[in-house]
Design a protein around this nucleic acid. Sequence first.
DNA 1: CCATCTTTGTGCACGCGTTCACAAAGACAT
DNA 2: ATGTCTTTGTGAACGCGTGCACAAAGATGG
Lengths: 259, 259
Amino acid sequence: MATGRTHRPATRSRGIPEATVARLPLYLRALTALSERSVPTVSSEELAAAAGVNSAKLRKDFSYLGSYGTRGVGYDVEYLVYQISRELGLTQDWPVVIVGIGNLGAALANYGGFASRGFRVAALIDADPAMAGKPVAGIPVQHTDDLEKIIKDNGVSIGVIATPAGAAQQVCDRLVAAGVTSILNFAPTVLSVPDGVDVRKVDLSIELQILAFHEQRKAGEETAAGDGALPAAAPRGAAAADSSADQGPDGDVPAVMPA
Amino acid sequence: MATGRTHRPATRSRGIPEATVARLPLYLRALTALSERSVPTVSSEELAAAAGVNSAKLRKDFSYLGSYGTRGVGYDVEYLVYQISRELGLTQDWPVVIVGIGNLGAALANYGGFASRGFRVAALIDADPAMAGKPVAGIPVQHTDDLEKIIKDNGVSIGVIATPAGAAQQVCDRLVAAGVTSILNFAPTVLSVPDGVDVRKVDLSIELQILAFHEQRKAGEETAAGDGALPAAAPRGAAAADSSADQGPDGDVPAVMPA
DNA sequence: CCATCTTTGTGCACGCGTTCACAAAGACAT
DNA sequence: ATGTCTTTGTGAACGCGTGCACAAAGATGG
């Protein structure tokens, strides 16, 4: 996975395993899609297929939340959406700040997935004075000097770090000192934080390296035993991948530094 | 972690556990930093601290690669850098294509971590004809129509998908059909691929939701048992930053779709 | 009301990953 | 050469996560 939890050795919330928590958003996404199609109920088998997991695992995951299913029928989609949302804390508003408005920071600011689940981008912060006041995704960028005030005024408890690696720890320290207790770190650095602060890491470079490892292994195996597992995949259709046009301003601080 | 592996139930390469493979890039980064500071050797304790892991775990991880340490001394930094690089397949050139040059795709194209490890951005691909020829990060964007030819001409085996969710599966199918066997997926969708193809997923929305879960738990605990670790949480309801902060225009396709 | 059928919820076993704790190995000083 | 000291490499125990397989529960039809 592209992400990895940091710290918190084996802390379990109220009996909900960490692995289950990590899958809840997946289920929630699949359920939301069903909800939009006005599907009333769904079986564990169907939902598991949509989420790409084993159906037994899904049932066990749900069993940690309670008995929300009906035997012989399945799960009520709307009800389950609500229960999972509540469990994940998405029924409340989570103001988020993004620090480091480079390419990646701008991409995150434009990310549509924020608003759709209780997250609200409360502020964009960058160390470059030239960026100050400049709107990104409709939100004016503020200077790092005001970081503490911004955090406190908005009651922010979740911070996103998209600065270069060299600045990440400093920014992290300031965020934590100002009251942030959850951090999503895109900078390729190991952040050290006090107990009680959660850090999750997203690291593109690591993901690619893991892929390269498996790729190399595949290339090596191809000489040895023929597993024959590689059928020529059928093209599903001449598709068009549309993309958004405008990209963030270039020439700024790179979103992420080399590993 | 922000990422999660897909498929591949318990496939182990040559005895190297998957969890270990996922940590090798972490060690490699720490070692590279040491190498740049001309540190000749490092103990498992020091390196573990730098990588943010347990020293016993680190030693066990290295033991899967072989006995590269010297008892009483530690590990030779340069030698270990080489061994890990070789194990991860980073001593060879990996041409990579990025499909979907929106905000996120552009950020990835500008990502410095590519070139520094055997990865080379061979091409940028987008479905928007208006993007064609336009240089991003010094590389001209090419149209989706030429996807298959680009893959084959460059011998690409690793593809990065940064398209909207709706286009991801189609793009994935075309990439796989053209010969790509490893995919890094940034679109919030479960991709289905044939056996033999590795998919890794990076999903910002999921990461935030997991953080929200823990954040909510922390807020809830503060009332109950005094763990002592939680300083008084800041009020969250305070005034919103800017009212005019409308999220990005929805007509503009976001780099990643809402979950 | 009873039989049947579907689907949930979970007890259980297994395997992976983590951590402890220590013996073996080598460096270094005398 | 011998003893001491440091640090590796790993055997073993433990805990978490996964998946099977099935009993319990409820819907549905007669």
